[in-house]
Amino acid sequence: MSQSKRLTVADIQQMSSASAKRFRAKKWARYFAAYAVMTAIAIVFMIPLLWMFSTSLKSRSEIFAWPPSWIPEQPIWSNYAEAFNKYPLGRFMVNSFVLVLGNTMGELVAVPIIAYGFARLNFPFKRVLFVLMLSTMMIPGQIKLIPLYSIYNQLKLTNTYVPLILPSFFGNPFFIFLMVQYIRTIPRDLDEAARIDGAGTWTILYRIVLPLCKPVLAVMIVFTFLWVWNDFLQPLIYLSDFYTYPISVGLAFFQGRYSVEWNMFMAATLVSILPVLVLYFFAQRHLIGGIASLGLKG
């Protein structure tokens, strides 16, 4: 009995290696289950996309043949080249990119300041102002179209990118709300400690809070990219010069007055989403991290 109580170093090593083995086996079983589930869902999610891809390689008559085929008889890769020859899609994408940069800059400047104010600072009428800010999200955007157009036209800013970028410098309520919620989950101890060290409000925002908000900043960049890339109505209303159109407007040119060239339309659409996906692929590692990893270190 007493013998067994006294564990040797070797015993401990042996035991831990056995449990580690069991642990590793369990871990791999869990991995496998996770991969199986994820792959199944991924396939379901990809079906529509595969169909788009298949359509982009078909001839116009094959798209409408029955029974429908998944694999084109003879893939017509030139649909892609032809789509690019028909309209300056590359130019349109560069324009979109400029708009994305402008908007991202605006959001990154404005949103943290406003969100920090709502989340951390106390001042009269805060709750009312917050609801007021949220309420601007609830108004159907189309209702503001005519008055806004009048304002920008009187400022002689139509046919420029200003109406498409300027609003981002006033902070998007969606992002403000998102960031407010995020900051509210960050313990105040960190702020207090910094304040005792003599840091001012803005120093705390930029030195303490913002670095912890990396995941939410990544979400902001990803969503700004996505929304600006896909926004059709605003550029349509404000821009007049063909060569300043963004890709969202450019894609609409594939819909004719009487019929749509589906194969080219699908080809152009697929190419147009690539930049968004590439950005996301690289941005996502910033989505992971934040205070969770900080907790690990602590």
């Binding site: 179209l145 005519i146 349509l236 007049s240 609409a252 040119f253």
Partner: peptide, 22 residues
């Protein structure tokens, strides 16, 4: 010349005609 997509032409016309400018 300003070339607009036919899908969206109505919204643009309606907005500018309604605004009475542009």
């Amino acid at each position: 010349m300003t070339l607009l997509p036919s899908d969206g032409y109505d919204e643009r016309m309606q907005t500018t005609l309604g605004a009475g400018q542009g």
